[in-house]
Design a protein around this nucleic acid. Structure first.
Lengths: 216, 216, 216, 216
DNA sequence: AATGAATGAGGATTCATTCAT
DNA sequence: CATGAATGAATCCTCATTCAT
C-alpha cells in the first residue's frame, strides 16, 4: 500500500503521490493569506518544497491550482454527505442544534472556511468555481437541511415556515458573525465567543426574541 | 441614461469638477465587475470618458482609487446616521421590521452592497479599507441597533437576549441570502424573493420556528 | 527705456520681456540641481512663477530650454572677450597669475561653472551644445591665452613650451580641484581652500616642483 | 571580436555565471554612450544577448545596474592598490613620470575613464555612487600619491609644496586634456597627442614654465 | 498672453509559463 | 521527474506637449 520498494531516486520521495496534495495545501494557505492574484506560482512551489517548474508537472496553470483546490474540497462532500441528518428521527430541533454547534465550531478553524472564502473572493474572475461548489456542495447539503425542516413541520415540531428560506435564518447569523470577525475584526469583547453566539442564536431561532406574554 | 453624450469636444473638456466622482463611479463598476487586480487603470479611464493619464490628475495611484471609493462611501455615514432608530419610541419590533425591510430592499441594488463586497474581496491586500469601513460605518450603525434592542428588552418588549449578538441574528439571514444569490446564484425558484425571505425571517426572528404549543 | 507706459494687464508684468530670462534662470537652477532628465517642465514653470503652458510660449521644447541656456551664456563671450589679455604688455606671468586668480575665484560661484557642468553632463544627449560652447567660448578664449604664452616665450619670459598644451597645465589643476570638490566632495581639511591651491599651483607652474639645486 | 556568436540555442542558454558581468558590460557601454536616463533596460538586455526580464534576474532595478557597475569597478582597487608607489625608493619624480605616463596612456581607453565619467554625469541623481567611488578609490589612491610627494620633499628632491594640493597640479592637466577632447572635441591638430601633452606637462611640472635665468 | 486640464507615447517592472538540461 | 534560467506580454505610472478657454 505504501510502495514498499525502497524509496530511492534523486531525493526521497513521498509515497504514491502526495505531491499534488502538498502543492494544493501550499496554494490554499497562500491564496487565503494573500489572495489569488497576489500569490506567485513560485511562492506556492517554494512552500510546497519544490521548484516552480515542478508545479506545472501537476497543474497546467495557476488557475488550475484554484480549480484543483475547490475540486478537492468538494469531492468528498457528495459521497460523505450528512445523510444521517435526513434520516434523523424525532425532534428536528435537536438535530439542528447539534449540527449547528458542530458546524460552527468547525468553521472557527480557518482551514475550513478557506474554500468558501476563496470562492467568494475570486468568484468574479472564476465564476465556474462558484458553480462547481454550488453543484457539488450546496446542492447536496441544503436540500438535506430543508428536508429536515420540512419533516419537523410535518411532524408538528415546527411552525409552517418556508424550509428553503429558513435555512438562511439558521445559518445566516453564524456566517455574518464570522464575516464581521474575519473581515472587519469586529468581535465581542471576550473574543469570537462562538458559544455565546450559538446559544443566543438558537434561542431566538426556536423561540423568537419576543417576550411570550410580553407587551405585544 | 448612461453616457448622455455630454457636449464636449473630441479631446478636451474643462473640468466639471465632478471628474473625481465620475472616475470613482467608473472604478466602482469595474472593480465590482472584475475585481481590483483585473481592472486596468486605463479601463477606468475609458469608462469615465477620459485618458489614462487624466486619472492620475485626480488619484495618485490605482490603490488611491480604491481608498477614494471607500472614503466616499463612508464619509456621509458618520454625519447622516440612523439616529432616528435610536430615538424610536414604542415597540422596537416595528422599527426593526421597518428598517430591515427598507435595508433589504435597498441592498438588492448592486450599487449599495458594492462597497462592502469590494472590501470583503480586497481586505487581504488592503486591510486598512476594512478598518476604515469598520470605524466609520459599522461602529456607528451597529451600536444604534444594539441600543434599540436593549431598550426593547428594558421596556418589556423583548426577551433578555444579548443585543450585540442578536444583531447578527437580525441581519445575518439577509446577508446570507444575498451571498447565496450573488456568489452562488442560488435563489428560490421565483427569483430572489426578498419579500418572502423577509416575512419568513421576521416571523422566526420574533416568534421562533417552534410551534408554540407544539410537541416539545 | 523701461516701458514707462504704466504696467497694466491681467497681472503686473515685468518690463519689456524678462520672461524668457526668468524661465532660463529657473531652468538653470533646476538642471544643475537635478539634471536635465529629472527636471520637469512644470518644475521650471513653477519656479519661474508661471504656468506650464506659458513656458511653451517662449521655448518650443524642453530641449530648447537647454539650448537657450547655453546660447545665453555664450553670446556675451564672443563680443566681450578677454582681449586685454592678448594686448597685455610685459611679463605674461603677471597676466596669467591675475587672470587665474580672478577666474578661480569666480568659478567658486556655482552659477558660473553651471553651464560648463551642464554641458559636460548632457553632452551625450545633446552634442550640439558642446559644439556651440566650443565655437563660441573656447575657440575665442583659448587662443587668447595661447597667444599670451607664445608672446611670453618670444619675449624671453618663458621657456619654449607648447602654448596650446600649456593652457591645460595652467587651467587643469583648478578644474580638477573643483571637480573633486563638487563631484566627490573631496576638499582639504580647511574647506575648498582655493587661495592655497592657487598659490601652490602658480608656484609649481612657474618654477616647477623640483628643488632648484636639489639632488637631481 | 564582439558578439562571437556564442554557441547557444535560439532561446535558452544555461548561465555561464558570467551573465551578470555581461549585463554590466552592456550597461556600461550604453550608459556611457547615451547616458543612464536615455538607456532602456531592454537595450541593455538586447546588447547583453538576453531578454528584458532576464536582466532582472541579476539586478533588482535599473539603478542597481549603475551601482553594480561602480561596485565592480571599485572593488579591486582597495585590494590591488598602487602600494609600490608608496614604497618607491629614490627620486620620486621618476615614479611620478612613470606613473603619469602609464595612467595617461590607459585613460585614453574609453573603458577606463568610463566609470568616473559616468559618476560625474549621474552624481546629481545618485550621489551615493560618488561617495562609494571616493571611499573605495580616491581615498586609497590619492594618499599614496601624497605620501610620495611628501617623501620627495623630505628627501630633498622636491621643493616644499603642499602634497595634497600638488596632486591636483599633477593630474589636473591630464584630466582637462581629456575633458576638452571628449566633451568638446578640442584636440591638437595632430590628434589627442597625449604623449606631447605629457612631456610638456612634466617639464612644466618639474621645472616650471619660467625661463631659469630669463628676464624675471 | 496665460492657464492648466487632458492626452498618450514611453519605459520600468512583474510574473505566468516554457524548455534545455 | 525535476530544475530554474529565460522569455515577453501585460500594466502601472510619468511627463512633454497640446489646446480650449
Amino acid at each position: 500500500m505504501e510502495n514498499e520498494k525502497a524509496p530511492r531516486g534523486p531525493k526521497f520521495r513521498r509515497r504514491a503521490d502526495a505531491r499534488p496534495d502538498e502543492v494544493l495545501d501550499a496554494a490554499l494557505e497562500l491564496f487565503i493569506a494573500n489572495g489569488f492574484a497576489a500569490t506567485r506560482v513560485e511562492d506556492v512551489a517554494r512552500r510546497a518544497g519544490l521548484s516552480k517548474g515542478a508545479v506545472y508537472l501537476y497543474f497546467a496553470s495557476k488557475e488550475a491550482l484554484l480549480e484543483g483546490l475547490v475540486r478537492r474540497a468538494v469531492t468528498p462532500i457528495a459521497t460523505q454527505a450528512l445523510e444521517q441528518l435526513g434520516h434523523f428521527e424525532g425532534d428536528p430541533r435537536i438535530a439542528i442544534s447539534a449540527t449547528l454547534r458542530m458546524v460552527a465550531t468547525k468553521l472557527v478553524d480557518p482551514k475550513l472556511i478557506a474554500i468558501p472564502r476563496l470562492i467568494m473572493r475570486e468568484v468574479v474572475q472564476f465564476p465556474e468555481l462558484a458553480i462547481m461548489y454550488r453543484n457539488e456542495v450546496l446542492n447536496h447539503v441544503l436540500p438535506v437541511a430543508e428536508r429536515l425542516i420540512a419533516r419537523g413541520i410535518a411532524q408538528g415540531y415546527l411552525r409552517p415556515v418556508d424550509p428553503e428560506l429558513t435555512v438562511r435564518s439558521i445559518v445566516g447569523p453564524i456566517a455574518l458573525h464570522l464575516i464581521l470577525a474575519e473581515v472587519f475584526q469586529l468581535v465581542p469583547e471576550d473574543g469570537l465567543a462562538m458559544d455565546r453566539l450559538l446559544e443566543n442564536h438558537l434561542s431566538i431561532l426556536f423561540d423568537g426574541m419576543s417576550l411570550p406574554g410580553g407587551s405585544k
